[in-house]
Simulated scan of single mutants.
Amino acid sequence: MYEMYAVFGGTFDPVHFGHLFPVEALAQQAKLTRVLLLPNNVPPHRPQPEASAVQRMNMLRYAIRNRPLFEIDSRELMCDTPSWTVATLEVLRNERGPQAPLGLIIGQDSLLSLSKWYRWQDLLSLSHLLVCKRSGYSVELGSPEIRRWLDKHITTQIEQLHQHPAGFIWMANTPLVNISATGIRQRRLQGLDCNHLLPADVFDYINRAGLYLK
C-alpha cells in the first residue's frame, strides 16, 4: 500500500495563513500523509516574486517549523526556466513510480483558468487534482468542453484518490481564508500590522530582512 501525498506550488511571496490553513484542512479530509511545498522560481503566469529565492525558502522554513505535515521541495528554485507544473509532475511521477497516488493541490481560481496552463490536458495522467475553495469563485467552468472534462473526472470518494495513482478531481470542503500575498505586501507599504495574516516567525523574518517596504 502506497502512502498518498500531494504537492502545492506557489511563489509564497510571502507564505501566509491563506496558504497553510486550507491545505491543512484538505490534507486532513483527504488523509494525506505529506504535502510538498514547491516554491516557484520563474512563475509563467504571474509577475516575478519580490523576495529572493533564498528569502522565500527561509520564510517557508519558519512557516512549517511546527507543522509536520509539510516539507519543502526546492527543485524548481534550481532552474532558470519557467516553472511548468506538468514538467515537475513528470519528474515526481518518475520518482514515485507508476502506481503510487499523487495529488496536485490547486485553488478554485486555478481550476477555473486551468485550460490556460501549459499542457493542462496531461495533468490528470500524472496526478489527481485536489481543489481548495477560494472566496468569490464558483465551480462553474467556462466552455462546455471544460465542463464535460470536469464532469468526467470529478469524484466525491476519497478512497478513489488512494486506490488510483492519478486521474480524479476532488473538491475539498476547505475554509475560505481571505488573505493574499499581494494584500500583505500592500499593508507593509502602508505601515500596517500583518502579524495576524501569517505565522509570527515569518513576520519576524520579514521585518528583520526589511522585505516589502518599497
Rank of each mutant, 00 (worst) to 15 (best):
T155N: 02
T81N: 12
P14K: 05
R56H: 09
L111H: 09
F8N: 02
E76K: 03
Y205M: 04
P39W: 10
A209L: 11
L197N: 04
S143H: 08
P82R: 09
P98V: 07
L104A: 10
K116I: 07
L129S: 06
S110N: 14
E145D: 13
P22V: 09
A87P: 00
K116P: 00
T11C: 10
W117K: 09
E90H: 13
L126H: 03
I146W: 08
Q99A: 14
P44R: 10
K31V: 11
P175C: 12
L211N: 00
R208D: 10
Y2I: 00
Q163V: 03
G10I: 04
Q29N: 10
S135D: 10
N178R: 12
C132G: 03
R93P: 11
L192A: 13
L112Y: 03
R56N: 12
S74V: 07
I154E: 09
W84I: 07
L111P: 05
T88P: 05
L197A: 03
V15W: 02
F17I: 04
Y118D: 01
A53N: 08
P39S: 10
G136E: 06
H128T: 11
I106N: 04
S138A: 13
R65G: 00
L20G: 05
L176T: 14
S83N: 07
H164F: 13
S135C: 08
V139W: 15
Y118V: 09
L38G: 05
L213Y: 00
P43T: 12
P165M: 07
H196Y: 13
H164I: 00
Y2L: 00
F8M: 08
R34S: 10
G210S: 11
M59S: 05
C194V: 14
S135P: 05
R119N: 10
L20H: 05
L192R: 09
Q99T: 09
P98F: 04
Y118Q: 12
R75S: 14
A30M: 09
G9R: 06
L111W: 01
Q160G: 02
R34M: 09
A166E: 06
Y2T: 08
R61Q: 14
R34Y: 05
L92N: 06
G191T: 12
P98H: 10
D109I: 03
L213H: 05
I158A: 10
L111Q: 02
L213Q: 15
W84N: 04
M4E: 04
N41W: 01
L37E: 04
G107R: 02
D204M: 04
A100I: 05
P82A: 13
Q186Y: 03
F168L: 02
V177P: 01
E90I: 02
P82N: 14
Q157W: 01
R93W: 14
R67A: 09
R148P: 00
K31N: 15
N40Q: 15
I72K: 11
L213R: 15
A181C: 07
Q28Y: 08
M59V: 07
R61A: 14
R96K: 12
R67S: 11
G107Q: 02
E159N: 07
R61E: 14
D151L: 11
L36P: 01
Y5H: 15
L129V: 06
W84G: 01
S113P: 00
N195M: 08
I105V: 14
E3T: 12
P199Y: 03
G191L: 06
L150G: 06
